[in-house]
Simulated scan of single mutants.
Amino acid sequence: MSSLLTNASAMTALQTLSQTNKNLAITQNRIATGQRISEASDNAAYWSISVGMNAQNKALSAVQDSLGFGKAILDTAYTAIHEALGKAEDMIAKYVSLEQDGIDSVAVNAEITQLKAQILAIAVGADFEGQNLLSTAGTAVDVVSGYNKTTGVTTMQIAKYDLQAAIGGTITNETEAQALFTAMKTAAANFGAMKMRIESQATFVSQQIDAIDRGVGQLVDADMEAESARLSALQVQQQLGIQALSIANSNTQNLLALFRN
């Protein structure tokens, strides 16, 4: 039965075309954003997980920055104390030479004084943005080394070595100079071990960030090959839907033929 008031074929064609246009819009959005889940309405559970993990990654990026800052402070102290160790070695040698009869002790003591002054200058100058691990005014440095949303922030501490006070103390002979050298060597070893630890932690945090990125990608990223194929299919469906709707709308015009003389 054909009806002038109700065009069931046109209604069906219109509903099909509307659904096709809706699917086409979804696919185009996925292609434009590169994500199959870009907002909560796409998949509330996966969207919530991805937002939480992205927040954790931002926190881990801040951890990376902190580790980088701590490493810079440590590198400054590490470089400085290695330079100072060379001066301390020279100072030991000068004290040993004073034991030789006939040596110009005044000249040697003058050299020792200059070596002490150089070590002191190194200690005071080992400053990075107001942080100095070798000066009396400096303090130990706390470095943010990790973050977990359950346990919170973790830190590691870089201990200072007061080289300024050590070189400013009483050093009058080879034994005292050797004791200073040994203390400096121990401090340098500690700085080296801490440097290795920070570098290792920075590598781990970087890998952790990459792993989270991959995990989030598995949840929300669009399969671009599949979306490309889907887009082509939907575009064909859209064209066919428009044609079907056009045919259905023309049915009412065909009814006129029934009333022609």
Rank of each mutant, 00 (worst) to 15 (best):
A107P: 04
A107N: 11
Q131N: 15
L115D: 03
Y95Q: 02
M91A: 09
V108P: 00
G125C: 08
A123W: 03
D104K: 00
A123D: 03
G125W: 09
I122Y: 01
D127Y: 07
N132C: 09
G130E: 09
V96F: 09
E99T: 14
M91E: 06
D101K: 12
S135L: 07
V108W: 05
V124D: 07
N132D: 09
E99K: 15
Q114C: 09
K116E: 02
A107R: 08
V124G: 02
L134I: 13
E111K: 03
G125D: 06
A121C: 06
A110E: 10
E111I: 04
L120G: 02
I92H: 04
I112A: 00
A121D: 13
I103T: 14
V96H: 11
A117E: 14
V106D: 07
S135V: 08
A110H: 06
Q118K: 15
T136N: 12
I112M: 01
D104I: 01
L98F: 00
V96P: 01
I122P: 01
G125R: 07
T136I: 05
I112E: 00
I103R: 07
F128N: 15
L134H: 11
T113N: 05
L134K: 04
A110R: 12
G102H: 06
T113I: 03
A93R: 06
M91V: 05
Y95G: 01
L133F: 03
V96M: 08
A93S: 15
F128S: 13
N109E: 11
L120E: 09
A121M: 09
I122F: 03
E99Y: 11
L120M: 12
A117S: 13
T113E: 10
A137T: 12
M91C: 11
N109Y: 02
L98N: 02
S97Y: 01
I119F: 02
G138R: 03
L98D: 00
A126S: 10
I122E: 03
V124K: 14
L120H: 09
I103W: 03
G102S: 13
A126V: 09
A93K: 15
G130R: 15
I119K: 05
V96C: 05
A117L: 11
Y95S: 01
D127S: 13
L134N: 02
Q131D: 13
A137F: 04
L120R: 13
S105N: 07
I103D: 01
G138C: 04
V106Y: 08
I119E: 02
T113F: 07
Y95D: 00
G102F: 10
Q118V: 10
Q118E: 15
V106I: 12
T113D: 06
L134D: 01
